[in-house]
Nucleic acid binder design. Structure first.
Lengths: 336, 336
DNA sequence: CTGAAAGCGCTTACAG
DNA sequence: CTGAAAGCGCTTACAG
């Protein structure tokens, strides 16, 4: 697959200049004669010359590359990864590419493939970590790496030892609450993990609860039972909820995957959505728009998230690197 | 974010050996005294030394990196990318990582960000291209790059000018046909693009049609009308189909996104699935398992696909690099 | 088994 | 404005 690539010396010979002039001309350095520059560019083009990034990065001590680690559940196959993280990966890729940077990606799930040496090896200038919070071993690994001096930025980390960025979860919860109240719902429930290391779920619940409190209401809180994944948890949780509170008329689920399970469970129980029970999720994943009825969801601005994560990762000032909030909005579709 | 990293000279000093010995010891070169090797490793560990990949790759003329380009629809936002490609990206990442290689990803949609210089710049050893066939400009760009001598491998390319790999589409179509016949369906339709540059759809239709022919049957063929995306096409196509052939009792859709639209259209028309109409899709995307009822689908073995794409991309023998087929199987869920 | 040295292909301070 | 030269941090053929 390899062919001997031309070097800047080859281009220099063809253009009749020195190698250093080739480098200057191609980098756009000031103080290169326009005619010379044109001649060099032409020679480079004719020869299919491309600057060697390893040589260049070695010299420059910068690779213009971001490393993105996505933490997975052990044993989970790739198509089962929460689509929210794929969408976030896509928006990070867009932000990276807009800066002319490259994106190195790595899916990690167990000590077999834990790796955090992207910056140390010079491969990347900064690292971003996203993915499931449920993989304790992975986050412990990154916490350890951070204690050893590694710096990185992450989305929705467990606890707060990292530089993190999250959705504006409190506002999102309030948006859901206000929408339910405004549409006349009165027997309102929240389904979501209470003891998750991920603060995001707590924030969503608190924003929701506080907003309801302003209307003199309080939600029924349901902890989803253990199950293989969020969708299965949603199915099981709604069965429990309806058994205890059959007159529930609105449910806010802490994530879309959970909400999709809740929707399934509601249909299984013969409830009409949204006539009998209104439902709002969180994340804005694509699968929600394909559900029947389409899922109403609190959605973060993913483009903003990708851009902010990249900017934060590249930022030198550690002080500005924590606690950033990404704006959210309510995308009203069929379920509420 | 950067701190001065130690070099092999620093490690050498600490271990009391020469720099070349450090390099040999850490690379696992033969003929290094075990005691020396241990001392060097210890020094490296204590200093947090990691080999500089740019220096190493420059010297070795190999980066142990695969570049993966995902072609997108212009203007499409990242969360709207067909999840099949994200899943394929994930399995390519797994295959890459299993070899100790890195994965560089790039989403490309228009001449603003077309790029094919990953191998030429030394950044990657090989390139893989996946993504939508509908972006003509992108594929024309890569076809042009190939004419200029660039070598790469792709999934489901338009036409056959590339080294490609695909699902075993013909067998997949036959699997769907046999399943319909075995379950007593008689008024059978195929919904899928007829004039797509992507041969995959033709292969699925042909495999389906040929298998039905063995039972003396022929499918109704429906070309989906133009629409914003595959899902919308599916909704519109099924409306057309039912208008012309109200007694249709089985539909094979050329892809899962299309099938999900068909499912929606079927429900809108008041048909029960699978009682009135059975439905089979193709791809095995996650959203299909979340549909109600869950979508029966012909699924390629994605792990095999990722592994084969990476192996093919790294393979030097161009002769073995085309026409590989990935095995498929029928995942029977709720819709058929 | 280990060290001194060349060289991978660039960028840029230093001369001219 | 342009060239000769040093040096980024490695790997490995060459001596010893």
């Amino acid at each position: 697959m390899k062919t001997l690539r031309p070097t800047s010396f080859d281009v220099a010979e063809r253009a009749g200049v020195s190698q250093s002039t080739v480098s200057r001309a191609l980098r756009g350095s000031p103080g290169v004669n326009a005619e010379t520059r044109a001649r060099v560019s032409a020679a480079a083009r004719e020869m299919g010359y491309v600057v060697d990034r390893h040589a260049s990065s070695l010299r420059l001590k910068s690779s213009e590359t971001i490393a993105l680690v996505t933490v997975c559940r052990p044993g989970e196959d790739r198509s089962a990864i929460n689509p929210f993280y794929f969408a976030l990966l896509g928006s990070i890729a867009a932000a990276t590419s807009a800066r002319g940077f490259n994106l190195l990606v790595s899916f990690q799930e167990s000590s077999d493939n834990f790796r955090a040496d992207f910056v140390a090896s010079g491969l990347a200038d900064a690292m971003i970590v996203i993915g499931t919070t449920s993989n304790r071993a992975a986050w412990e690994y990154f916490a350890q790496a951070q204690r050893s001096g590694l710096d990185f930025v992450c989305w929705g980390s467990p606890g707060d030892p990292f530089h993190w960025m999250r959705s504006d979860n409190g506002t999102g919860g309030a948006l859901a609450a206000d929408h339910f109240v405004a549409s006349g719902r009165r027997r309102i429930a929240f389904i979501g993990p209470q003891r998750s290391p991920q603060r995001q779920f707590d924030e969503r619940r608190e924003g929701f609860t506080d907003a309801l409190a302003k209307h003199g209401m309080a939600p029924i809180i349901v902890e989803p039972p253990a199950a293989t994944d969020r969708h299965a948890q949603g199915v099981a949780a709604v069965a429990e909820l309806l058994a205890a509170h059959p007159d529930t008329d609105a449910i806010f689920a802490a994530s879309d995957m959970l909400a999709l399970g809740v929707l399934q469970g509601l249909k299984d129980a013969g409830r009409r959505v949204p006539e009998d029970v209104a439902l709002i999720g969180f994340d804005g994943i694509r699968a929600g728009t394909l559900a029947d009825p389409a899922l109403t969801s609190v959605e973060p601005d993913l483009d903003a998230a990708g851009e902010a994560l990249v900017a934060m990762a590249l930022e030198d000032d550690a002080f500005t690197r924590s606690g950033t909030r990404i704006p959210v909005y309510l995308a009203t579709r069929g379920t509420a």
